Simulated scan of single mutants.
Amino acid sequence: MEKSDILKLVGKRIKELRIQKGISQADLVGRMSGEIDPTNISRIEAGRTNPTIFTLYRIAEALDVKLVSLIDIEPSNN
């Protein structure tokens, strides 16, 4: 699996969880501890940027889910 594929899958998972919880991107940023550029959430969800593990941790906290739930993806069998 390519790096870009992984980033897209993680971003898609974050977006799915956020929508399930009825949270907008702006609300997610507001719930996160520390400073984050609101457009960064959009880039993460689109798979256009590689978030740090700490950023993923803060997103998980803001969504009230375990960190592993953001990155629980199946590897391809290439």
Rank of each mutant, 00 (worst) to 15 (best):
M1V: 05
M1K: 13
M1A: 06
E2K: 15
E2Q: 09
E2I: 04
E2S: 10
E2H: 09
S4V: 14
S4K: 13
D5I: 11
D5N: 12
D5Q: 12
I6K: 11
I6V: 11
I6L: 14
L7Y: 02
L7E: 01
L7Q: 06
L7R: 07
K8A: 15
K8I: 13
L9N: 13
L9C: 11
L9M: 12
V10C: 05
V10W: 00
G11D: 02
K12L: 13
R13E: 03
R13H: 07
R13L: 01
R13G: 03
I14G: 02
K15T: 07
K15G: 01
K15E: 03
K15L: 08
K15Q: 14
E16K: 15
L17T: 09
L17F: 02
R18G: 09
R18F: 04
R18S: 04
I19H: 10
Q20L: 09
Q20V: 12
Q20C: 10
Q20P: 04
K21E: 00
G22S: 03
G22R: 07
I23H: 00
I23Y: 00
S24R: 06
S24W: 06
Q25A: 13
L28T: 05
L28W: 02
V29K: 09
V29H: 03
V29Q: 08
G30W: 01
G30Q: 04
R31S: 10
R31D: 02
R31A: 05
R31V: 05
M32A: 03
M32V: 04
M32N: 01
M32Q: 03
S33N: 11
G34H: 06
G34D: 11
E35W: 12
E35D: 15
D37N: 14
D37E: 11
P38Q: 13
T39L: 13
N40V: 14
N40D: 10
I41F: 04
S42M: 06
R43W: 07
R43Q: 11
I44Y: 04
I44A: 09
I44L: 09
E45W: 07
A46F: 09
A46L: 14
A46N: 14
A46W: 05
G47Q: 08
R48T: 08
R48P: 00
N50Q: 13
N50V: 13
P51Q: 08
T52A: 13
T52F: 03
I53F: 06
F54K: 15
T55L: 07
Y57L: 10
R58H: 07
I59D: 00
I59V: 14
I59K: 04
A60T: 08
A60S: 12
A60R: 11
A60N: 08
E61C: 15
E61V: 09
A62Y: 00
A62K: 00
A62V: 01
L63E: 03
L63H: 04
L63G: 08
L63C: 09
D64C: 08
D64S: 12
V65W: 00
V65Y: 02
K66A: 10
K66W: 00
L67G: 08
L67D: 03
L67E: 00
V68A: 09
V68H: 15
S69E: 09
L70R: 15
I71F: 00
I73D: 01
I73Q: 10
E74S: 11
E74L: 09
E74C: 03
P75L: 01
S76A: 15
S76E: 12
S76D: 06
N77S: 14
